[in-house]
Design a protein around this nucleic acid. Structure first.
Length: 581
RNA sequence: GCGCCCGUAGCUCAGCCGGAUAGAGCACGAGCCUUCUAAGCUUGGGGCCGCAGGUUCGAGUCCUGCCGGGCGCGCCA
């Protein structure tokens, strides 16, 4: 255990032990919350390698002077072999400097852990259900779905990396009016396949060509049985077949991005199993659903709006602006009514829920959070549930917007984009911006091979390390950890940056922000490239220094470990670590 | 009218759920390139962190109210 413990984990433990010692000595009152204590590198590296705010955080609840507490803590921390200096600064920070030996030891830890460096158990095996994509099964995936797909998938991997069990789930909206429209659209294509001249696809039906194959299949199987039949005879059959075909397409599209869900949950099956009705009964029994009349919607004039009594969920009791109907006036379930039951079902098999939604659904976050709180908070604390909103992506080419029109079916499909620029470019680029900020995706810029392009920059870092290893190998050289003490200050600085990966991965998982991994990799690549460039003017700083085989071995060992971190980070992001470019 | 998100250097954006003198790239200025891959490198200037209050040892970060932009508002999905 201690041999494979990373430096930050060890120091966090040492700090806790130091605080324990102060408690035992009676210097510090026992039982104070340490939740706000951090150990992290200071922004300004001149302050030291690590800083902790422990004295400032604990001073007030302990009723102590921060500097007096800091002095006591410094006395404890200075005893640690890894700590070469511990100083009090500013309002009560404790700045620590660590020995070169401890950084070199961290490099060995990195090598020992390999692909597991950065992995943690902060999730303690608890299960998180991540629902993402959940695009309507009415056509192929388009770019509007792409960002949420990538963010959700990377988040799922990140949570696994942090020790959670993860269920990757896709909610199939196969019960609403949109799939009836799909069935009618398929029926039209079916008549077309039978030889009928159907002309232009009417307004209100899906115009895309992608329904032609499933319609042809129906024509082969059933002949003209349903050509003139009333809708009631074929609607369910056509809907079922068309939805199934759309899901095959969607899975293929997702596979292009390297995404595979564990579970596809069907809204229709949920309804057939009576889950929404169960939920309604449960909520009615607690007076959380009642029959009431909604006010007319604001800000928009609806000519067909009329007040009518509907079963309403008391979402206002949980912070929503309005109570929300769970069934329509014809008795069928609203999207929300089914979604409520669906989230209750998900909560049965997970310890926490995360939904990744497009920003256009932001208006429904409050009601679903209200519903989850109501349905899972019955016997104590509600299940942790977060909705991550992913903002729009504007598709550009060379700075000009790419025209898209849903109406004509002329949208840019995800498959088109992945085929044009590649999976790795799509995934990495989608993760180089925090998801709640809008993003431009320029088809021309994202494939540029220059340092302005973060995808290229990070992959080039890995490729450059691999290339160097091949070259060294050809000269009979290779990584060697026998004399890592030969590494100088510039190399130690690289280790310091690399050593932040584990705590950064933990923080990213806790915050549910996979993009932090992408930014870290970019920083690491920048540091590596900068170190590499030292060799341009100073040949003695080159990795392969023929005059000193032992030093070369140590530097190659360092480079190999940096490459390992890039691989680990890219693996979380689902991006290939290429070996040459 | 209401809700959510965003507002940080001329531009594109980071900023680790409150920490010390706010960072990176582009663009701009200066100097470098017959290479362990210059697909560049080094270096310099450039900021009332939208505005105004509040919370506290400490605010770009949290709260309130404005301003500006984006996305939404339904018995749709």
């Amino acid at each position: 255990m201690s041999q494979t413990q990373t430096l930050y984990t060890a120091l966090t433990g040492h700090l806790a032990a130091a605080l324990d010692a102060l408690e035992a000595a009676g210097t510090l009152p026992a039982g104070l919350s340490r939740a706000a204590i951090t150990v992290e590198p200071p922004r300004d590296a001149s302050h030291g390698d690590l800083a902790t705010n422990a004295a400032m955080v604990l001073a007030k609840p302990a009723g102590m002077n921060p500097r007096a507490l800091a002095e006591a803590l410094v006395a404890e921390l200075a005893k640690l072999p890894a700590v070469t200096s511990a100083e009090i600064a500013g309002p009560g920070f404790i700045n620590l400097r660590l020995s070169s030996a401890s950084w070199i030891a961290e490099l060995r830890t990195l090598a020992a852990l390999g692909a597991d460096y950065g992995r943690s158990d902060i999730g303690r095996g608890s299960t998180v259900n991540v629902e993402y994509v959940s695009a309507n099964p009415t056509g192929p995936m388009h770019m509007g779905h792409c960002r949420g797909a990538v963010v959700g998938d990377a988040l799922a991997a990140l949570l696994e990396f942090a020790g959670h069990r993860v269920i990757r789930e896709y909610y199939v909206n196969d019960a609403g009016g949109q799939v009836d429209v799909l069935a009618r659209s398929a029926h039209l294509r079916y008549r077309e396949a039978l030889g009928e001249a159907v002309g232009d696809i009417p307004e209100g039906l899906y115009p895309g060509d992608y329904l032609i194959p499933v319609a042809q299949e129906l024509a082969r199987e059933f002949g003209d049985t349903f050509a003139a039949a009333p809708e009631a005879d074929w609607l369910v059959l056509f809907r079922t077949r068309a939805v199934a075909a759309m899901l095959v397409m969607i899975r293929d599209d997702l596979a292009l991005l390297g995404i595979r869900h564990d579970l596809f949950s069907s809204e229709a099956e949920l309804q057939a199993a009576g889950k929404p009705a169960e939920a309604e009964a449960w909520l009615r029994a607690r007076d959380l659903v009642y029959d009431g009349v909604l006010e007319a919607p604001k800000g928009k004039v609806l000519d067909d709006w009329e007040p009518v009594e509907l079963p309403l969920f008391r979402s206002t009791s949980f912070g929503d602006d309005q109570d929300r109907p769970i069934r329509k006036s014809d008795g069928s379930w609203t999207y929300f009514g089914a979604d409520l039951a669906y989230h209750f079902q998900k909560a049965q098999s997970a310890d926490a829920l995360v939904d990744i939604w497009g920003a256009d659904h932001a208006g429904t976050v409050k009601r679903i959070k209200a519903a989850v709180a109501a349905m899972t908070g019955g016997e104590g604390k509600p299940i942790p549930f977060e909705v991550k909103l992913v903002q729009m992506v504007q598709l550009l080419r060379g700075g000009d917007p790419v025209k898209m029109s849903k109406r004509s079916g002329n949208f840019v499909t995800l498959a088109d984009v992945v085929r044009e620029v590649g999976k790795d470019v799509v995934r990495f680029t989608m993760l180089t911006r925090k998801p709640e900020a809008p993003m431009d995706f320029d088809l021309a810029k994202v494939v540029e091979a220059s340092k302005d392009n973060p995808v290229f920059y990070v992959q080039y870092c890995h490729a450059r390390i691999c290339s160097m290893m091949r070259k060294a190998s050809a000269e009979g050289l290779g990584p060697d950890d026998a004399e890592l003490e030969l590494l100088g200050q510039e190399e130690i600085e690289l280790i310091k940056l690399a050593a932040q990966f584990p705590r950064l991965a933990e923080a990213a998982a806790v915050a549910r922000e996979p993009h932090r991994i992408a930014f870290f990799l970019h920083d690491l690549a920048a540091a590596f490239h900068a170190y590499w460039n030292l060799g341009n003017d100073r040949p003695e700083k080159r990795f392969i220094a023929v005059q000193n085989g032992k030093l070369t071995g140590a530097r190659l060992f360092l480079a190999a470990q940096l490459g390992q971190i890039v691989r680990n980070g890219l693996a979380v992001l689902g991006v290939t670590a290429v070996e040459e470019m």
